[in-house]
């Protein structure tokens, strides 16, 4: 009765994705001509990636040493980096980014909450699973605009406040209120994806463990803490890492449609600041330098998190 779901949700462990033989035994029999065919089949993709990704990355590093508006340019060495580390605005924006991290524990909690409940296979759980995942297929600009419309000064949230006899709040005129609304949007948009990942972890738990725990008389909470949590450690790490990356690199859509960084830079995130420096202030050099610094920051964060969260993952 449960097996179709397991096959459907857990392809990572299933035959479709992991069944292939690693070492092709036919290598010896492959003639050089066949190797050449393989090379030429991979070549178009490689050329595209080389010209549209590798080359631009090197170019970005070069631009970060220039003072340039895209038309004229002058080599200024590391000055862009020095300016970035010295600028109070960059520090402020970095702190703002850290504030948006508040959404992550809530996203993980809600994701875990719904994943564990869905795992009980309550009536209609497949339907619920798709509903919870629904915001994940929407564009960040759709979600951002929905929340902006809802929380705008004469919008539905404020008319609800008024009808309850409270004073309306101008959410987007106050720094912390604006951040609050964006965080709310992040949670609404993000918990379904976390749920999906965590549920796929739950589905791959060996059910014998539960049977054994039941024989030993373990209660629901004991099974939750001693079986479920250790088993989905890898998925929890993944969700936490991917959400941290997301907070540092992918809030552009939300900020762009909801607050445009305001009021007074108070909701400007690092990725939005790159866009502003490059395409509003036309300082491409400093924009590139900032992008490279962000890449450094998220690399450190990712490595630290995966070390910390996966250190005893010996399965």
């Amino acid at each position: 009765m449960t097996s179709p779901a397991v096959v459907e949700v857990g392809p990572v462990k299933g035959p479709t994705f992991a069944g292939g033989r690693k070492n092709s035994s036919s290598r010896g029999s492959l003639t050089r001509q066949k190797q050449r065919i393989g090379f030429f089949a991979a070549l178009p993709a490689f050329i595209v990636v080389a010209s549209l990704l590798f080359y631009p990355i090197c170019y970005a590093v070069w631009i970060s040493f220039l003072k340039t508006d895209g038309v004229t340019s002058k080599f200024i060495g590391l000055k862009n980096y020095v300016d970035i580390f010295a600028a109070p605005l960059v520090h402020q924006v970095f702190v703002t980014n850290l504030k948006f991290l508040v959404a992550i524990p809530i996203v993980i909690f809600l994701g875990l909450f719904s994943a564990v409940l869905l795992y009980q296979e309550i009536w209609g759980w497949r339907f619920f699973r798709i509903i919870f995942f629904l915001p994940s297929v929407l564009s960040t600009s759709v979600i951002g605009l929905m929340f902006r419309s809802a929380f705008t000064l004469n919008g539905p949230i404020n008319s609800a406040l008024i009808s309850m006899g409270l004073t309306p709040i101008n959410f987007f005129a106050r720094a912390n209120m604006a951040i609050f609304v964006v965080v709310l949007a992040l949670i609404w948009a993000g918990f379904g994806y976390a749920m999906m990942i965590l549920l796929s972890g739950l589905m791959s738990i060996d059910t014998d463990l539960f049977a054994a725990a039941e024989v030993d008389g373990a209660g629901w909470w004991q099974r939750f803490f001693y079986i479920i949590m250790p088993s989905i450690r890898q998925q929890l790490a993944f969700v936490s890492i991917i959400n941290t990356l997301y907070t540092f690199t992918s809030l552009f859509g939300f900020i762009f449609v909801m607050t445009a960084g305001g009021p007074l830079y108070s909701t400007t995130t690092l990725d939005y600041l790159v866009y502003q420096k490059a395409f509003s202030a036309f300082d491409m050099g400093q924009g590139s330098a900032l992008a490279i610094v962000i890449f450094g920051v998220i690399s450190v964060l990712t490595i630290a998190q995966s070390k910390y969260l996966k250190n005893d993952d010996g399965r």
Binding site: I63, T249, S250, D271, A278, M284, G287, A291, I294
Partner: peptide, 20 residues
């Protein structure tokens, strides 16, 4: 090389790609 570029954030690419 494909796996390595998957991890790059889009902000690094947007400026050079736009200029190119």
């Amino acid at each position: 090389s494909f796996i390595a570029v998957m991890l790059l954030p889009s902000q690094i690419l947007i400026i050079p790609i736009y200029l190119l």
